[in-house]
Amino acid sequence: MGKYNCIIFDIDGTILNTERMNLVPLQRLIKEELGLEIQYENLLKYKAYAGKRTIEELGFKDVDKSYSKWVEYVNDFEEGAVLYDEISEVIKILDSKGIICAIASSKMKNQYEIDFEPTGLNKYIKCKVLAEDTKKHKPYPDPLLKVAQILNINPVQCMYIGDTIFDFKATKAAGMDFGIALWGADNLDGIEADFEFKRPSDILKELGL
């Protein structure tokens, strides 16, 4: 066994491509409720945020109500969540080699059920920490440390793979190594990843599998 006993994955932008299904409905909501036309590119930074925080940052008055409406629009959007190429195979191979696969995500549980469970990968995930499971979210280390605590693994034996600055900051604060998912990342400013993965299969190469 190499240095890492556990690979912890983010979901959005790492396992699942959910960018358009989240941001196009957000554009619609902003136009409807705030009367603003915001360019798609200017919404990309919110990919790093938990859903409700995005709504707060954008200045919606009734955060819970607007968030619920956004979720409704997301789930009605014709383009659903899709797995990135190779990621399914990578998770299966990691599991078969005895490396624990886990998830730390700001996704709410009900959205996890809608987006992730249909992929069939749930059976390979030994632990998942979602938005409701910690009071503090990324960039705080709490979700990652909770995974290590639940699995009873030393954080230094874990690698976190994500696509945003918040993922990077949370990883470093948790004392873990960080792998950037370049296939889902669109802004690398301030990110000093331990590993740069151009495609999911690079994870296996790095681990010598």
Score class of each variant (00 low, 15 high):
E196T: 09
A148K: 02
C101M: 02
Y160H: 14
Y49K: 10
P200W: 06
K3R: 15
G98T: 08
C6R: 13
F195Y: 15
K107V: 08
P141W: 10
I7K: 04
G190D: 11
V147G: 10
Y160R: 13
M176H: 06
C6H: 13
E86S: 14
G120P: 03
C101P: 05
A81W: 02
W183R: 07
D64H: 10
F197A: 13
I180G: 09
Y40E: 05
K205V: 12
D76I: 12
K169A: 04
C158L: 03
V74T: 12
Q149M: 06
K92E: 14
A185Q: 14
L58S: 01
S105P: 10
L94D: 08
E56V: 09
Y49E: 12
Y67Q: 09
I8V: 15
Q157A: 13
Y46M: 14
L23R: 01
V156D: 15
D189K: 15
E19M: 14
Y84G: 10
Y84D: 09
D133M: 00
M176T: 12
L130S: 01
A173F: 00
F195I: 05
K31Q: 14
A185D: 11
F9M: 01
D177F: 00
V63D: 07
L34V: 06
L36K: 15
K198D: 11
Q157N: 15
R53D: 13
D189L: 03
S105L: 06
I38M: 04
T18E: 09
K92F: 06
I191A: 01
V24E: 15
D115E: 14
G51T: 04
N187M: 02
A81M: 03
E206T: 12
K172I: 13
P25E: 12
D12Y: 11
Q149V: 02
E19F: 01
W70D: 06
M159P: 04
Y67G: 06
A174T: 05
D133L: 02
G59P: 03
A173V: 03
N187T: 02
D142Y: 06
F195G: 02
S88L: 04
K61M: 05
P118C: 08
E57Y: 02
K45N: 07
V156Y: 10
A81I: 03
S96D: 07
L43N: 12
P25I: 11
L29G: 00
V74S: 02
I30C: 14
K61I: 12
M176Y: 09
T134V: 02
E117N: 04
K65N: 13
E113D: 15
K146M: 06
E192N: 13
E89F: 13
E117S: 06
C101L: 04
E132L: 01
T171L: 05
K123D: 13
M159H: 00
